[in-house]
Structures are given as structure tokens and as C-alpha cells.
Simulated scan of single mutants.
Amino acid sequence: MAPADRYRPVRIWLMFVALMVCVMVLVGGATRLTESGLSITEWKPVTGALPPMSDQAWNDEFAKYQQIPQYQQINKGMSLGDFKKIYFWEWLHRLLGRVIGLVFIVPLAVFWWRGNLDRSLAPKLFLLFLLGGLQGAIGWWMVASGLTERTSVAPYRLAVHLTLAFFLFAAILWTALSLKPRNLPVRPAIKAAAWGLLVLSFVQVFLGAIVAGLDAGLSFTTWPLMDGMLIPSAASLSPLEPLWRNLFENPMTAQFVHRMTAYLLLAAAVANLVLTRGTPAFRPSAVLLLTIVIQAVIGVLTLIHVVPLGLALLHQFGALAVIAHAASNVQRFSTQAQVAVPSAVLQRA
């Protein structure tokens, strides 16, 4: 294999893993939207890979679910058949996590054994594997919050779980892209702007998860007005003390902040496009802006149609697309070029 193609199998593998993480995020979204996430009340990383295999096993699982507040306060009287439907989504979500772990660690061991990984790359890949394991543990930490005193998971734990999933997706994608750099020589201001857009995109993902955790998208379903106003009253946005609790526990505040951050992200992407005009960064910046615009439109449609499953999942996929483009731009603008760049090009950038 030619030196230039040394990392090609590793890149393909990492891109496939990133795609699997994307699918898992969407299945996780379906699990949340169908209120299925608390249907499995125990964390069994190994034995839990198989679903119940007999009528007695199903009855035992259903009996465990009947002990938690979600069943007692919301789903009391649910049939075993309906329980199997919500169980399926949570089981599939967890199964995908296990499969991704295997798809990651087995090829990683093979690549390491064959010498495809150098000393700088191998630690990064093992760190990604550990990060995936941490994500599974945080997933159980999230589920556990809804098994005793709540009828759903805690919004801030959901936000941590989802944001880390997006971070893992971006980190895997970044690593794959770094193995075949597509360097664009740009000045420091453009690099800083790319980083700013990526960080703001992650903030918006976190805020969106808070909205999801509070079911805030079901409460105020008009746009551009919210509860009949462009900006709700301060009393409506901050009734809880201390003030920070409103972001995590007040549906109006959570949705309002999510909306305002979307506007800020859109404005920042437009400003970034102006900044990159006439430079090699203009085209990727334009693609990122277009992705953000499409995501914003999907978000509005999801809201005014009262969060149907299909649109909600499309909105979550749009968030993944925004993170992917933002991370790709940062990697593209920040990595040191491997070839000499004419000074005239650097001056134009």
C-alpha cells in the first residue's frame, strides 16, 4: 500500500463508526419521543443484550416497570403488548451502544496489531473508546433519575447525555478527517470564528436537550411569537429561585433561550460568511450557513406542528449535520498544512 493510502482503512472504519453513532442518536431521539426510555429498569451491560425470551421473562420485566412512578402515574393499566412496544425502542438503543463498542474495539485491535496506528494516533483512538464507555455509564445515570421520584429523566442529565453523544460523534469525525487533511490556509480570525461557531453549536445542542427534557416544545407552539409576544415578560421567564433553575425547570425559559440562541447562531454564521469572503474558507462557510438555515426551518416546522416524531427526528439529524460541518471546518482551518503554501495565497486569506 502506498504511503499516502496508509490510513485509508482506518478512515473508512472511523467514518462508519461515526455513521453508527449518528443512527444511535436518532434511535435515542425516537426512544425519548415515544416515552420508552424508562421501560428497562436495570443496567445489565452483558446479559441485557438479549430481550426477554419467554412469556415469564416478559412478565417479569413488565412487573419491574410497574414499580416505577412513570407507570403508576402516567401509564397505569398499560397492556403487556403496549409495554413491549416501548421496551423495543430502549432495548434497540442499548443494543446499538453495545454493537458500536464491538465495531470500534475489534478493528482497533486489528489495526494496532497490523501496525496501522502510529504512536500519536493509537492513544487518541483508545481515548475515543473510553469516551464511548463513559457515554454508556452516563446513559444509565440519566435513566436512573427517572426510576424513583420522577416520571421522566432529569432534563439536565438528558442534556449531558445528548451533548456527550454529539461530542463523541464530532470527535470520531474529526479524527477520521485528520488522517487525510484538507487544509485551507486562513488567517487567525477565520480560525477563531470557526471555533466560535462550533462551540455555539454545541451550546445549542445542550439547550435543545433541555427543551426536550421538559417537553417545552409542546407548550408554546407558535412562531415567531411565543405566548403571544416576541419576548415574554420577565416574570414569566424567571419565576423560580435561584434564577438559574428557570433554564432547567421552566419550559418557557428553556424554549425562549433555545430560540434566541438559534437566532444568534444564524447571525454568527452570516457574519462568518462575510468574514470569509474572498478566501478559501468562503465555500465551506457557505455550506455551514445553508445547513444552519435548513435546520432552523425544520425546527420551526417541528414546533408549529407540535413535535411529530418524523419532524423531530429530522430536526435532530439536522443538528448532527450542523455539528459535522462546523467540526469539519474547524479541522480544515486549524490543521497545519503538509505542503508549502505560496505567500500570495496566505495574504489573500
Score class of each variant (00 low, 15 high):
A18E: 15
M20K: 03
M20H: 06
V21I: 15
M24K: 10
G28M: 10
G29L: 11
G29T: 07
G29P: 03
A30T: 12
T31C: 06
T31N: 13
T31S: 10
T34G: 07
E35L: 05
S36Q: 01
S36H: 04
G37K: 03
G37C: 03
S39V: 07
I40H: 01
I40C: 02
I40K: 04
W43I: 10
P45G: 07
P45V: 10
V46W: 14
T47Y: 08
G48D: 02
L50M: 12
P51R: 02
P51M: 04
M53L: 15
S54G: 09
S54R: 00
Q56M: 10
A57I: 06
A57K: 13
A57P: 08
N59S: 12
E61Y: 00
A63Y: 03
A63D: 14
Y65L: 02
Y65W: 11
I68G: 13
Q72P: 01
Q73G: 01
Q73S: 07
N75K: 06
N75V: 01
K76L: 07
K76I: 03
G77A: 04
G77P: 06
S79W: 08
L80S: 11
L80M: 09
G81T: 13
G81F: 10
G81H: 12
F83W: 00
K85E: 09
K85M: 12
I86W: 05
I86L: 13
Y87Q: 10
F88S: 03
F88H: 04
W89V: 00
E90G: 01
W91M: 03
L92P: 02
L92A: 13
H93T: 01
L95S: 05
